[in-house]
């Protein structure tokens, strides 16, 4: 094989557009934000350099930041495993039991993922309305509860609604990823197991789950990264007039909501940028830990 010489310019030219665009509109704003995070600035008046004051405030005095971190992590810790398990089960069932109708079910369960988060926020706000929402109407009609539940008015029910929302929104995406993963598992493995008389449940736990481990790593890490960005849905879910930011007791105020509030509502670009960096540090840490746990000894990836 006549490989191009390592000094050839071609590959560099091919990757050049990516790196130019990334430096211009990805890295530069990030570094610029880092700089801004060391200042006190509202975006238009004179900028004052304040050193690490924003970070001192963030990490040592800002209880709201920690609460937001806790809220975000809590919602994620509940929602992510649920949507992974549900997505995995659904994918495995669709693959083994459905043939002609698989595409239809795939699309239906993917619908929530393609629905605009803005719509989901408003939709759930109406469905879970205390006085007149469909959910309470149904629960009352069936007789599961005697009095309507104040879903969006108490901290824990509000969190539960957000978890439900995220699971509903995300499991279809997980399902699709797992379906893709399943199609790479050699069919012989299943056939061999069947000859040995293994039931579906056995093959699921003995073949499917272990073989999908790299996919798990993928959905878990991307799930964490995306989970920490949570903003649209809770922002719109609790947009009513008498509503505190992030719902009752700020129970579902996420870090990005805190960031948005600081940077773009309270006119503190500097502090907002510091919150974003605080979040970055946390994400980095969590992803690292998650990858360690799931990967334990396996070396997948590139």
């Amino acid at each position: 094989m006549a490989k191009p010489s390592p000094d050839s310019k071609t590959p560099y030219l091919l990757i050049l557009p990516y790196f130019v665009l990334y430096f211009a509109f990805g890295l530069f704003p990030i570094l610029f934000s880092l700089f801004i995070s060391f200042t006190s600035w509202n975006g238009f008046s004179t900028m004052t350099f304040v050193g690490v004051a924003n970070y001192v405030r963030l990490f040592f005095h800002d209880a709201a930041f920690y609460k937001a971190l806790y809220n975000t992590a809590l919602v994620m810790v509940c929602a992510l495993p649920l949507s992974i398990v549900l997505g995995l089960l659904l994918a495995a069932m669709l693959k083994d039991y459905f043939d002609r109708s698989r595409n239809v079910f795939q699309l239906i369960n993917f619908l929530p993922y393609i629905t605009t988060p803005v719509a989901i926020g408003i939709l759930f706000q109406i469905l879970f309305d205390w006085k007149a929402g469909a959910v309470n109407s149904i629960l009352l009609a069936v007789g599961i509860v005697k009095a309507p539940i104040y879903w969006l008015g108490h901290p824990w029910p509000a969190r539960a609604v957000v978890v439900l929302l995220l699971v509903w929104q995300g499991f279809g995406y997980m399902m699709v990823i797992f379906l893709a993963g399943l199609s790479t598992i050699p069919a012989e493995l299943y056939e061999a197991a069947k000859i040995d008389g293994a039931k579906w449940r056995d093959t699921f736990f003995r073949i499917t789950v272990p073989m999908l481990r790299p996919v798990m790593t993928f959905v878990l890490t991307t799930g964490i990264i995306v989970g920490f960005r949570l903003f649209d849905e809770p922002q719109l879910l609790f947009s009513g007039e008498g509503e505190p930011i992030g719902g009752p007791d700020h129970a579902v105020e996420t870090v990005v909501m805190t960031f948005y509030q600081a940077a773009f509502r309270d006119f503190s670009f500097g502090y907002g940028a510091a919150i974003a960096y605080g979040l970055f540090i946390v994400i980095f840490f969590f992803s690292f830990v998650a990858m360690r746990i799931v990967n334990r000894g396996n070396d997948y990836g590139t």
């Binding site: 006085k131 008015g153 009513g240």
Partner: peptide, 8 residues
């Protein structure tokens, strides 16, 4: 117990 300016 209605919420402020809620639809209900």
């Amino acid at each position: 117990t209605y919420e402020a300016n809620s639809p209900s």
